[in-house]
C-alpha cells in the first residue's frame, strides 16, 4: 500500500496513509502517515465507534493540509484500551506452540506447491510462497 501512495504522489496526487503497522510504512517511506497505535485491522478506529472513526479521518485530512515535508508521521490521539496485552498477541511465537507452527509452515508450503502446480500449465510460478510476509 505504501508503494501505491508513493506512486500516486510521484504523479501529482497527494496522499495520506492511515495505518497501524508504523514500522512497515515508515521503512518503505511515505509522504504522510497518520499512525493509529491499534491492533492490525481497524486503523480508522474501534469497530462501531463512529466518534473515534470520524476524528481519525479528520486527523488524516488535517495531515494532508499541514505536512510540509515527506515522511511526516502524526500519531492519532487514542488508546486502543486500558489493557495493553494486544501488543504481544499478533504473530507471537509461544515456546509451547513451536511444534504447531512448524507443522503449519509445512502445510502452507504443501498447499502452495499444489496451487503452483495447478497454475503451472497457464503460467510459470514465480518467487517464494505467498503469505511468507505481510506485504504492506
Amino acid at each position: 500500500m505504501s508503494l501505491v501512495a508513493r506512486h500516486l504522489e510521484e504523479h501529482g496526487i497527494p496522499t495520506v496513509v492511515i495505518g497501524s503497522a508504523r514500522d512497515i510504512v515508515e521503512e518503505c517511506g511515505v509522504p504522510r502517515l497518520l499512525f493509529s497505535d491499534f491492533p492490525l485491522g481497524n486503523p480508522c478506529g474501534r469497530p462501531y465507534d463512529r466518534g473515534m472513526q470520524r476524528a481519525i479521518v479528520g486527523h488524516a485530512l488535517d495531515l494532508l493540509e499541514s505536512a510540509r515535508l515527506p515522511r511526516t508521521t502524526v500519531q492519532a490521539p487514542f488508546r486502543w484500551s486500558e489493557d495493553e496485552s494486544w501488543r504481544e498477541r499478533y504473530a507471537r511465537v509461544d515456546p509451547e506452540r513451536l511444534e504447531e507452527l512448524r507443522r503449519l509452515g509445512e502445510r502452507r508450503r504443501a498447499n502452495q506447491a499444489r496451487a503452483d502446480g495447478a497454475r503451472s500449465g497457464r503460467r510459470k510460478a514465480s518467487g517464494p510462497a505467498a503469505g511468507a510476509g505481510r506485504p504492506g
Binding site: R6, V30, R71, L101, R102, G133, G136
Partner: peptide
C-alpha cells in the same frame, strides 16, 4: 514479529520489505 513468526514456521528466507531513501511529496 513477521520475520520471527515465519522463521518458526520453517521459512528460511525472511520477507524483504520495501525500503527507500527518497520519498516523493506533492503539496495539495
Amino acid at each position: 514479529r513477521t520475520r520471527e513468526f515465519y522463521a518458526a514456521q520453517g521459512y528460511e528466507r525472511p520477507y524483504r520489505w520495501a525500503h527507500f531513501d527518497e520519498v516523493p511529496f506533492t503539496p495539495l
